[in-house]
């Protein structure tokens, strides 16, 4: 199984500790109403993981700020999605 962490390790971030810019609105919706949980497949930084009990856990520290998760969550609109505060988040060296 390919580890995306090895790729993200090359990237430069300034993490806004304790202030995640993306949050799941209602975890119950992910667990009980979303069969596919495609955020766990489509996020290019692997920020979303499936827990054994059907829960989806989001850790946004490695976020590449693409917007994929927000756009594919079009059935439930279950994300609070904002840009990180100015100067925080991914800082591309090359882009």
């Amino acid at each position: 199984m390919l580890k995306v962490e090895e790729k993200l390790f090359q990237d430069r971030y300034r993490v806004d500790s304790g202030r995640p810019h993306i949050q799941i609105k209602d975890g119950e919706i992910c667990t009980h109403k979303c069969a596919e949980q495609q955020c766990t497949v489509c996020c290019p930084a692997g920020c979303y993981t499936q827990e054994g009990n059907g829960k989806v856990v989001l850790i946004a520290d490695g976020c590449l700020e693409c917007g994929t998760c927000r756009i594919i969550c079009d059935e439930h609109r279950n994300l609070e999605w904002e840009w990180p505060r100015g100067g925080f988040g991914i800082l591309f060296k090359f882009g």
Partner: peptide
């Protein structure tokens, strides 16, 4: 350096189980 990448429509990504990095 060499840059290389691949892009697919999100509507298609949404329907399958391969991650973008795979």
């Amino acid at each position: 350096s060499i840059t290389l990448g691949i892009g697919c429509m999100l509507s298609d990504f949404k329907k399958q189980k391969t991650t973008p990095y795979e």
